[in-house]
Design a protein around this nucleic acid. Structure first.
Lengths: 194, 194
DNA sequence: ACCTGAACACCGTTCAAGT
DNA sequence: ACCTGAACACCGTTCAAGT
């Protein structure tokens, strides 16, 4: 008797696709290979993702990029004024780690596809800054500055790690330190906003 | 008599490819279409770019991303101390404009391909900061912070512009202003570096 | 040296058909 | 409702052949 196959699901499809991207790279993600990994014909995927590969890539972005900055408790009394800096430092470290874990998805984040995928994260950053006392306009601009830095700097890091090989060890950068330094620069600069 | 065809050249190939990407998007850049645009069979391209499409994309990145921050004159006496800020503001505006002009190449900048393409730009930024009086370590970190911000924020902008349509005018962001605000945040924060 | 033609092993996707 | 098989219009690339 055949093993009772797990039913095909949108979530399971996207999880499996992410696994392929993480393990073999974005260019190896094909509908046929994804079908193989799901033990199904490639065409079955279209039943759950009618827009095909476009929808699959949109799903990958949404899965990786939606990491909010604010903790679940929206009005934590214990968070002293000024604590927003360490909260954003923690968020930045977590977001960077997530992007590096799924570095194959990074190029998709810079495409015009699924532009809404970062809306929740941006809104969350804006809220943190607003609660810290920033005016609306400053909070909105600060959120974009922060997110832009984190995504861009992490992209530079991912690129540089590809160049690091035995015959080119002259550039020996501590990326943990460098990311933290830059994040502190941005956080310090936010204080100059009106 | 047939028109004397312009000889095929590495530069002409990459220029034509960039034209296709700018006009039709990265996904429409195929070796066959590129051959058509060059009035040549696609296979002729391989004679000038032996590594094929990989080398073509590497060339696109190098062509778009290598915009130095320092002017040609490396030791301009007239540049007063403190003028480095406006110099970096000008560079940032120019770099952003270039990335937006070739937004289709942006995803390639976040891939692991051609990791050396940003080396010249990074070195140039480091030099500007060093001449402004920053210590070596601070100049290196500051260069990455700046470049990361500019690339990341511009990527956010390119994404957002894809979402802007008639039925979604609630988010009406002045991106020129927003980019400048964030750049000023980063520049102000650099002053906190040792 | 430079380009072509034909061929190979792949793609994403449609569509009628099965259960 | 959910999946399959065959087919279509494409890809990137190799390789022998032309000039």
């Amino acid at each position: 008797m055949a093993a009772p196959r797990e039913p095909l699901t949108r979530d399971r499809i996207i999880d499996t696709a992410l696994h392929i991207v993480d393990g073999q790279g974005l260019s190896r993600l094909t509908m046929r290979r994804l079908g193989d990994a799901l033990e199904v014909e490639a065409m079955a995927i279209y039943h759950h993702l009618p827009r095909g590969k476009e929808e699959l890539l949109d799903g990958l972005i949404a899965h990786v990029a939606a990491l909010p900055a604010a903790p679940v408790r929206p009005d934590d009394e214990r968070s002293a004024a000024g604590d927003w800096r360490s909260q954003l430092r923690e968020w930045g470290a977590a977001y960077r780690a997530r992007l590096l874990d799924h570095a194959g998805v990074l190029p998709l984040l810079v495409t015009r596809r699924n532009p809404a995928a970062l809306a929740a994260t941006t809104a969350s950053l804006r809220d943190v800054l607003r609660r810290a006392g920033f005016l609306d306009a400053a909070a909105a601009a600060g959120a974009h500055t922060l997110l832009g830095y984190v995504i861009g700097h992490t992209a530079l890091e991912a690129r540089a790690q590809a160049a690091r090989r035995a015959d080119d060890p002259d550039e020996d950068i501590d990326w943990d330190l460098r990311f933290g330094t830059g994040l502190n620069v941005v956080l310090a600069g936010l204080l100059t906003l009106p």
